[in-house]
């Protein structure tokens, strides 16, 4: 276990180094124009622009700038300084992360609560009416882009209800921190959660169905029935338990990816999360912030991959961490 963690940490460091370098390479390769001029503003003098250029370190070579960023990130832990407002990038990420985490965790709980039972249901009675309905459900939400779903929900459940029916089911405004008011945090998150969960629930329904159908055809399920075990025990203890591995893999990857920012959902619901932060920083060519959000997303993916591997070993005694 210890050597596993050490190896994964080394792996993480290498991934982050490579990614940050690629970010710098792509950023300057993409011909960003005169960044200093954009930062200072329209009416700046040539001298001001030149000063800013030096202040931001843009006069140095790409390699030097990257290395400066890496050492700053490592030794100061601030992930660089925002070009625009001089804030440490880490501060901005700390503000945005709770929003994205709220969205991710709530959404994940909701899509698991929807997807897993529907998937189990359709696997136990393949080709039944319920199975067909769940297939329709899955295909519908799989084919709707999440921004369409989000906008449609906003239109009908927020504007229509509030303006025309005068039902204030969903409040206006955006994210309320959970530390400030749990109830308000919850009601403000409902629509984003649903919009993110429905699409994923469809994926998990299909995944659970396929995996459980496979398992239910296994010889050990026949053995369990031959032992005279009750139906539920056969289904859950012997069937679902063995069908979980692919679900866990997908879940780990999804959580890791989403924590790195749900760009579209955050944009639709005006949530100031990581996705929104990376989008605005990209448009304003704010390199340290762009790089910071990319590294954060990568770190989450690597970390959750490692967690998935650990869970695999916990779930299946045949798998050993080596």
């Amino acid at each position: 276990m210890f050597s596993f963690v050490v190896r994964r940490v080394i792996y993480l460091v290498i991934v982050l180094l490579i990614l940050s370098f690629l970010t710098y390479l792509l950023f300057f390769g993409g011909n960003p124009g005169n960044i200093a001029a954009q930062v200072v503003g329209r009416n700046a003098t040539a001298a001001q622009i030149a000063n800013t250029r030096i202040r931001l370190g843009l006069n140095h070579s790409l390699l030097y700038q990257w290395w400066h960023y890496v050492t700053q990130a490592v030794f100061h832990g601030n992930l660089g300084t925002d070009f625009q407002n001089q804030e440490p990038v880490i501060t901005e990420i700390k503000q945005a992360l709770p929003v994205t985490a709220s969205l991710t965790i709530g959404g994940a709980i909701l899509w698991m609560l929807l997807g897993i039972p529907i998937g189990i249901q359709s696997a136990t009675k393949p080709r039944s009416i319920r199975d067909r309905l769940s297939t329709i459900f899955a295909l519908t939400f799989l084919s709707i882009p999440s921004f369409v779903l989000g906008l449609v929900m906003l239109y009908f459940l927020f504007f229509d209800l509030t303006d025309h029916a005068h039902l204030h089911w969903f409040p206006s405004g955006t994210y309320v921190p959970i530390t400030q008011n749990v109830g308000q945090w919850f009601v403000h998150m409902i629509l984003p959660w649903i919009s993110i969960a429905l699409v994923s629930a469809a994926v998990y329904t299909r995944l659970m169905r396929a995996s459980l159908l496979d398992v239910l055809g296994e010889d050990y399920i026949r053995t369990a029935r031959a032992k005279g075990l009750p139906r539920r025990t056969v289904l859950f203890k012997h069937g679902v338990r063995a069908a979980l591995s692919p679900i866990v893999t997908q879940f780990g990857l999804d959580i890791g990816t989403l924590l790195g920012g749900a760009v579209i959902t955050e944009q639709v619901f005006s949530l100031q999360g990581i996705g929104k932060l990376s989008l605005t920083s990209l448009f304003s060519k704010n390199l340290p912030v762009v790089s910071g959000t990319i590294l954060l997303g990568a770190a989450f993916i690597v970390i959750f991959n490692a967690i998935v591997d650990v869970l695999y070993a916990v779930l299946d005694p045949r798998v050993r961490l080596s």
């Binding site: 026949r222 053995t223 031959a226 075990l229 063995a242």
Partner: peptide, 27 residues
């Protein structure tokens, strides 16, 4: 009934199968 059968299976009528590699639950 299924209930009667469940009571009989494993209790009065037992079974062993061809492939012992896959007949035991791996987990």
């Amino acid at each position: 009934s299924e209930k009667t059968m469940r009571g009989l299976r494993g209790e009065s009528i037992s079974m062993i199968f061809q492939d012992p590699l896959t007949s035991l639950h791996p987990l």
